[in-house]
Nucleic acid binder design. Sequence first.
DNA 1: CCACATACATACGCAGCGTATGTTGACGAG
DNA 2: CTCGTCAACATACGCTGCGTATGTATGTGG
Lengths: 197, 197
Amino acid sequence: MRKPRSEMIAETRAKLLAAGRKAFGNVGYAEASMDDFTAEAGLTRGALYHHFGDKKGLFAAVVSEIDAEMTQRLCEISAKAQTRWEGFVEENVGYVRMALEPEIQRIMFRDGPAVLGDPSQWPNANGCIAAVARSLDSLKEDGAIVAIDSEACARFVNAASSGAAQWIANSDNPEATSVRAVKSFRTFLAGLRADRG
Amino acid sequence: MRKPRSEMIAETRAKLLAAGRKAFGNVGYAEASMDDFTAEAGLTRGALYHHFGDKKGLFAAVVSEIDAEMTQRLCEISAKAQTRWEGFVEENVGYVRMALEPEIQRIMFRDGPAVLGDPSQWPNANGCIAAVARSLDSLKEDGAIVAIDSEACARFVNAASSGAAQWIANSDNPEATSVRAVKSFRTFLAGLRADRG
DNA sequence: CCACATACATACGCAGCGTATGTTGACGAG
DNA sequence: CTCGTCAACATACGCTGCGTATGTATGTGG
């Protein structure tokens, strides 16, 4: 019944991560008080500084965790598709849809860049951009899309996705805006096709 | 020789605006101390709170000012173009180039969204999105581009532009990345053309 | 010329971060 | 077994920085 020490440590780490994630997602990075959310987890700031160095360190860990989840979800989506092109499109539509979730919106798209700088420079994150770039490479091999720099294009597409998500999330009627945005987004992506299908 | 009172007031307002803009642009919103940069302008926080309500209020005013300048510059660029399509493209390339400037990068793309929320909801700012949307409407009338929701498309394009700028600004070799990004960006935009010129 | 409002400066309180300093419990050496 | 040591936290302190309440002076209308 005795738990090994290492397990206890991992547990407190996880508690801090979860508490921070919750606070950052709900009230944002700047408004999240370390005293408050560590206390909520039954701990103190001491534990936080020990495990993550500082507030930014915890935030980076949260970002990393969320990014991994997002990448995972995107992979599952694209794996289901019939064709590569379809997979690519659904992957991006999925990205838009995920960016609609308040937690992702706030942490990954609003506070993230402000606190950690440009997302493409994040160490343990951007599985998403990489995934899109890989899809584009495959499509180029197939001759399915126009000749374009894959990495550049991936960045544009990712940016457009998050832009779409921002738009939807902040509109008066997210549901209606969502269908409008996704429809236009598909048209937008179709511009990349070699045959203009 | 005596200056009228109203002129003095406008002057201190301008001083605060300039000092805030400088500080926000250099060290970012969070790191900018109101005590510091008001003192640098030969004033105190008292004046700031009087004119702008709070730190966020001053920041919003700075954002508004910069947005006006950006919109102005974009209008000048598109006015020079021979064709509407060319104007549209140059406008967007201009947008990318502007987003390269550290002050704009930091204030408009990094801290702005984090502090004030989604850019499209800013009261006295987003001349840029509106400008792009207008260009797209004109192009649609001409039948120069594919059938697509103008507002939606404008948001995608704007997002892609700032994505490109972020990429360039944070790369190891901004100059080289810039030519690569702009080239790809033109190809990317070409996807919107009806005739695929 | 006097009362009042405006345009600031000064003073104070409080929250929040980071660090320096305990304190406790788990392992390894002998 | 027991003792020293180190990791894993908690506690305590100081400092910075924001917001507000209050003071003060100068210009302005009656």
